[in-house]
Every structure is written in structure tokens, then in C-alpha cells.
């Protein structure tokens, strides 16, 4: 059986990396190895997980410096004997071992605008065509792993921005509201508010790490920025609005 050489963050803020050797079998993922470590050598190792299949977004960690889902990182992707460093999401306050306090995200979620849909038609259905919703369905794939929030330098390196900046996960949600074919929210509640969108410098790290493959920057953030340009920065549109009345 091959052995993995792990370097796992243990403890809280004043903790440190601890090295372990753990045996593993073909086909295992990092989370399996962490579980084996837990069952054999470190019974109190704190780690979050639920589905083991990349569906719940619980097991996020930084593996060899890259934010990833532990349950979707196969051991086969490492070369034999390589040291595998496993750290918690570094952007968030650490609780213990691989578990961090992600409550900031839940607080931001409360500030997001709620969808307000127009009513159903006479037959009792809300009609929407597939072509009207496939864009938003991409956004709704989000499993709230907060890996994008972790990697985003706006808050990772400048936590003082946390009050003004919702972060990529919530730009995805905001885009969902803004583009919903039946949503009745005024622009002031979505696009115009912005939730700190202009702090994003579209450097795309969020897109690079999103385990759901959501094109966060190209399909959510940039389109939202463009909608803001429509509102505030496009002189031709402004003239159009003056001439033909506000749309």
C-alpha cells in the first residue's frame, strides 16, 4: 500500500503543521486519507464534510496551497512520496485544525436582495423558456463551498474590505436575481447597489478555483459590471434615455 506524507494544520490560530504518514489505496481522495488519519492517529482532528461527492461544499481546504474540495481531490494526482500540505481556508478565522469560521458568508447572504417574481398567468403557471433560465441555472449550481470567497484577494489580503464587498459567491447570486426573467426588483436593489462589485479587479482567481466550474467572472461579474456601466457610465445610453424617455 502506498503511503502519503501529509502536513496538516493542527490547532487554532497559534497552531502549526504536523506531519503524518498515512497508508492509502488506489482510488482514494484526500478526504479519505484525512478520515483514515482521524480514525487511526488523530481521533480529534476537526474536519467538515457531508456528501463525499462534491455536492455539499463542506470539505473545502487548501491543498498544497490551492483551495479545493478534499473529497474531489484524488490521491492519484500527487506524485509518489510528495508532501501534501492540507490547511484550512486561510481567509476565514480559524476555529480548529481544518475548520474555519465561515459565518461572514452567512451574514452577507442576509443582505442579498430576495427574488420578487411577477404572478402566474391565467392557467396558474409561471411561464419561462429554457433559454431564459439556462444562464441563471449555471449560477444556481453553486454549492456554497466558499472556495471563491477564500481565494479572492479583495478580502483574503484586505479583510477590512469585508464590510463593503460581498464576494464572488454572492455576485453569482446577485446575477441570478438581476437576470431572472420574472424578477421585479428595481435596479437600485441589485445592479445599482452593486454590493462592492467595483472592488473586484476581475483577476479571475474565483473562476479558476470554483469546483462547480461556474464561470464566475465571465458570466456573472463582468455582465454585472456591464449592467452598471449601462446605468452610470455609457454616454450614448444616457443620451438615448434623455431622448426617448427612461426605459
Amino acid at each position: 500500500m502506498p503511503k502519503a506524507h501529509l502536513k496538516v494544520w493542527r490547532g487554532d490560530d497559534s497552531g502549526d503543521y504536523v506531519e503524518y504518514d498515512v497508508e492509502y489505496e488506489e482510488g482514494m481522495v484526500v478526504l479519505d486519507v484525512v478520515h483514515r488519519l482521524q480514525a487511526t492517529q488523530a481521533g480529534d482532528l476537526a474536519v467538515r464534510w457531508n456528501c463525499k461527492a462534491g455536492k455539499c461544499g463542506s470539505c473545502s481546504a487548501e491543498i498544497n496551497g490551492k483551495p479545493k474540495l478534499q473529497c474531489m481531490t484524488r490521491m492519484g494526482t500527487f506524485v509518489d512520496g510528495e508532501t501534501i500540505t492540507i490547511a484550512p481556508l486561510k481567509t476565514f478565522p480559524i476555529i480548529r485544525d481544518l475548520v474555519t469560521d465561515v459565518s461572514w458568508n452567512y451574514r452577507v447572504a442576509e443582505t442579498m436582495p430576495e427574488l420578487k417574481l411577477s404572478g402566474p398567468d391565467a392557467s396558474g403557471h409561471r411561464r419561462m423558456q429554457q433559454i431564459d433560465i439556462d444562464r441563471e441555472q449555471e449560477f444556481r449550481k453553486c454549492i456554497e463551498c466558499y472556495i471563491c470567497q477564500d481565494v479572492c484577494h479583495v478580502i483574503r489580503d484586505h479583510p477590512e474590505n469585508q464590510g463593503n464587498f460581498a464576494g464572488p459567491r454572492f455576485f453569482v447570486q446577485l446575477a441570478n436575481v438581476a437576470m431572472h426573467p420574472l424578477d421585479q426588483n428595481p435596479k437600485s436593489a441589485t445592479v445599482a447597489h452593486g454590493f462592492g462589485l467595483d472592488y473586484c479587479n476581475i483577476t479571475k482567481c474565483c473562476t479558476e478555483v470554483c469546483p462547480e466550474g461556474i464561470h464566475i467572472t465571465d458570466n456573472a461579474i463582468i455582465p454585472l459590471k456591464e449592467r452598471r456601466v449601462d446605468e452610470y457610465y455609457d454616454p450614448i445610453r444616457a443620451i438615448g434615455r434623455k431622448l426617448f424617455g427612461k426605459k
Binding site: R48, N50, C56, Y106
Partner: peptide, 10 residues
């Protein structure tokens, strides 16, 4: 668990 991670999500 955290909110949104219950079995239903799977």
C-alpha cells in the same frame, strides 16, 4: 452541519 449542507442538498 452548516446551513444548506443537509442531506437534501444531495
Amino acid at each position: 452541519s452548516l446551513l444548506g449542507k443537509a442531506h437534501t442538498v444531495m
